[in-house]
Nucleic acid binder design. Structure first.
Lengths: 229, 229
DNA sequence: CCAAAAGTGTTAAAACTACACCCATGA
DNA sequence: TCATGGGTGTAGTTTTAACACTTTTGG
């Protein structure tokens, strides 16, 4: 069954930059293409938007189909519409970025008979289409947004140590932070809560585990809290 | 001539929120629709993206056709893809916002035989489609962005007084600023330059005219300046 | 007992806030 | 000469940045 329109229409796709955090690195999930164009090249997960689904739904569906990732933080980034971004025809893509914590979401990468894998941000292969550009924008957005919105917590397990949190900011902002000042600031904002538990299976003194207190954060925001790391 | 595709495709449009600044108010340009749906209702300027033009080009073209505005600051906002945002069929729209200075750009509103007019942000008519939502997002974006990016200057004439600049921030941020502190801060950042000229035709002491120094701003940014009002 | 990371305060410098008066100009 | 906004400095407070040692735990 085919569809006919009076005027030519661009095809519409979504692409998703999925970030995760490692002991030492910010990672991105990429997929190896098994069809032309760019056959064999690595690309962002994504695909065509169906006419009866929203953009967000399309992004989640593609992510789930191609990487097995589900129920993750997802946010629209921008829409790329250069004329020649796809050699086949005019394709406009709505780019998203997503944040996952590696521990919680098993990397059951290749569900769709495709090859999916995590790559370190400093160790990226050449990418298909304009995906390198999209990835750069996503990285930049993450860097700026993480400073004034508590989205970083999405990259951590539900319970985390302050060192993990600090490490997250250090990796994303790409600079070292002072341990005492960082803890003072985070604890002073009162948006993380002690769980009463401590780390397990570490070969040194175990750190306290905290939890992000979204309820409190929302309350403080309403009162005009200026969250900033 | 018609176009046929294997799968149904959403229509793709652009819509633009054009902001301008008044002596006392933030204004938006709206257009009265002369066709269904929402015939007679006010709406954001915008229209269909042609298959051979980029999204930015489409936004500029529509703006020029419908409002006569040209060569203005334009930035992509987000893409709205709810299923029912247009009663006719599935339409995905890429929303933009634009900033103009009222003095420099004659409001030659209705070129396209349409009715175009400026509305104060506190005096808006009901809007067609989801345009109220888009406008709200644009307003919010302007408020947040203006604080850490010098886009506000786009709303002023090339030469402006510090009071105009302060007024701009007061209107957008919706709070009063202290005159001395504001001037200290702006002048301290060294991103505005005295022109040597002063205001004309005012019935009180004439203020000095300044100019935004983009060259210097870019230089300072590279050195890691944290611009913030 | 060693290695590894947890946890903890103080001080100096910088940034921010609040605040009031005289000056220049045109009507 | 009056009304209108232009232009200017200081002091108290808050925020930030720099900095080092003791504690706990497992191996």
């Amino acid at each position: 069954m085919s569809h006919t329109y009076e005027f030519a229409r661009p095809a519409l796709t979504v692409d998703v930059v999925v970030f995760a955090l490692d002991e030492d690195d910010l990672k991105v999930m990429l997929i190896q293409r098994d069809l032309p164009p760019y056959e064999g090249a690595w690309a962002l997960p994504g695909g065509f938007v169906r006419v009866e689904e929203t953009l967000d739904d399309a992004a989640r569906r593609e992510l789930s189909e191609e990487t097995g990732l589900r129920d993750i933080y997802l946010e629209q980034l921008y829409t790329a519409g250069q004329l020649d971004r796809d050699p086949r025809e005019r394709v406009v893509t709505v780019a998203y970025y997503a944040l996952v914590n590696l521990a919680g979401h098993a990397v059951q990468a290749s569900t769709d008979a495709r090859n999916a894998a995590w790559f370190g941000m400093n160790d990226l292969p050449p990418l298909a289409f304009d995906h390198e550009q999209i990835l750069k924008m996503a990285h930049e957005r993450l860097r700026t947004k993480v400073r004034y919105q508590p989205i970083g917590f999405e990259l951590l397990p539900e319970r985390f140590t302050l060192r993990q949190l600090q490490h997250l900011y250090e990796v994303i902002l790409d600079r070292e932070l002072d341990k005492r000042n960082f803890r003072k600031k985070v604890l002073g904002m009162e948006i993380v809560k002690e769980t009463g538990e401590i780390e397990k299976d570490v070969s040194h003194r175990a750190a306290r585990l905290y939890r992000f207190d979204k309820r409190k954060y929302d309350r403080l925001m309403k009162q005009g809290l200026h969250f900033e790391i």
